[in-house]
């Protein structure tokens, strides 16, 4: 039965249920067990934000703290996955991928291909992303496009608690390496989540809202920005269809095309930087595959081509907001009006 819990609780519950169901599921990362070896209480932290809190008490042998050695423990996740475990490793902030990317994209992502299809690497890397908590340039980026680029990886970017739980369970059960992006601003967002275990298949978009005028493809936290924009536009008589891809690799291209073929207009809302982003990728795919249906040029709403700034005055300008989304929607409508005139 469903009840309201937070995005963070949903992920914690998914981890707990999968650890209960499958003894090969292990969880590790910095402070994940809560700060082992310290004189105070066990399970003090559960990761820097507390996502894994409570797991150590239930599964002490399978929840491990790590030294601050991302290369070693992310690589260990790859090695463990290739030798019979289903590890869930926490890369605290995705901004830290620079110190361990080799283990992700040269090792885990490539085992299956390099080894002629004989390897399975069922690992999940949980990682926080996104701006909005004044954490500045090295703790606020939205780097999922970089991972989406890599063959062999799957990339999950949930937008709400229900999806977060179902996608995490699906990610743990998946036999390929999955990078699971958790927007830190969403952790406290509540939603209806069933108590039972369930899977949301990777590669299946959700139509968050249906409408005939404009397709808004929005990723992660940007889904709520798109919904707010759609609410405002509804008052202007504009019906937006919002597509949440939920996973950027695999990307549910068909769901996007189906929507754009109906609406003829596309706005992509992506918190990452604009060049080689999901926004540019989806806009290009739509241009290539739905050109004849388009009534206006696709528009991208993204962060600017800058690092995330620190000052609240600047950071608030950095993240796409509902006003920018609505403005982009109006532009697609305006352009089409001129085209018809």
């Amino acid at each position: 039965m469903a009840r309201r819990i937070t995005f963070m609780q949903a992920i914690n519950e998914a981890l707990a249920q999968e650890m209960e169901r499958d003894e090969t599921v292990v969880v590790f990362g910095e402070d994940n067990a809560g700060g082992a070896g310290a004189p105070g209480e066990d399970d003090a932290w559960g990761g820097v934000m507390g996502v894994t809190k409570g797991l150590y008490g239930k599964y002490p042998g399978r929840v491990l703290d790590t030294p601050i050695s991302e290369s070693a423990f992310v690589g260990a996740a790859a090695g463990a996955a290739a030798s019979g475990l289903r590890p869930v490793a926490e890369l605290m902030f995705v901004d830290f991928f620079g110190v361990c990317m080799d283990q992700i994209y040269n090792q885990a992502a490539k085992f299956r291909y390099m080894f002629g299809g004989k390897a399975v690497t069922p690992m999940v890397i949980r990682t926080m992303f996104g701006a909005g908590i004044r954490a500045a340039a090295q703790h606020s980026q939205s780097l999922y496009p970089i991972f989406t680029h890599i063959p062999g990886l799957k990339v999950v970017v949930p937008s709400n608690p229900y999806d977060a739980k179902g996608l995490m369970i699906a990610s743990i059960r998946d036999d390929d390496p999955v990078i699971f992006f958790e927007n830190k601003v969403l952790y406290s967002v509540e939603g209806d989540v069933p108590e039972e275990s369930y899977e949301i298949p990777l590669g299946e978009a959700e139509y968050v809202r249906e409408g005939d005028d404009v397709t808004i493809v929005a990723i992660g936290r940007m889904v709520s920005m798109a919904e707010q924009a759609a609410d405002a536009l509804e008052d202007e008589g504009v019906e937006c269809e919002i597509v949440d891809p939920r996973t950027t690799s695999p990307l549910d291209e068909e769901a996007i095309y189906e929507s754009v073929e109906n609406t003829g207009r596309l706005v992509v809302v992506d918190e990452s930087n604009p060049r080689c982003s999901l926004a540019s990728d989806i806009a290009a795919l739509v241009a290539q595959n739905c050109f004849d249906h388009l009534k206006a040029a696709p528009r991208m709403v993204t962060a600017p081509h800058t690092p995330p700034p620190f000052s609240p005055a600047l950071e608030d300008l950095y993240v796409p907001d509902p006003e920018r989304v609505a403005a982009a929607v109006r532009e697609t409508l305006g352009t089409s009006d001129r085209a018809r005139a």
Partner: peptide, 22 residues
């Protein structure tokens, strides 16, 4: 696996060792 990345292997055996231990 052989490994095209110098220093690629040691993290992997940590994982395999963890697997054996768990």
């Amino acid at each position: 696996g052989a490994n095209g990345i110098v220093g690629g292997g040691p993290p992997l055996v940590c994982g395999a060792g963890l697997s054996a231990k768990v």
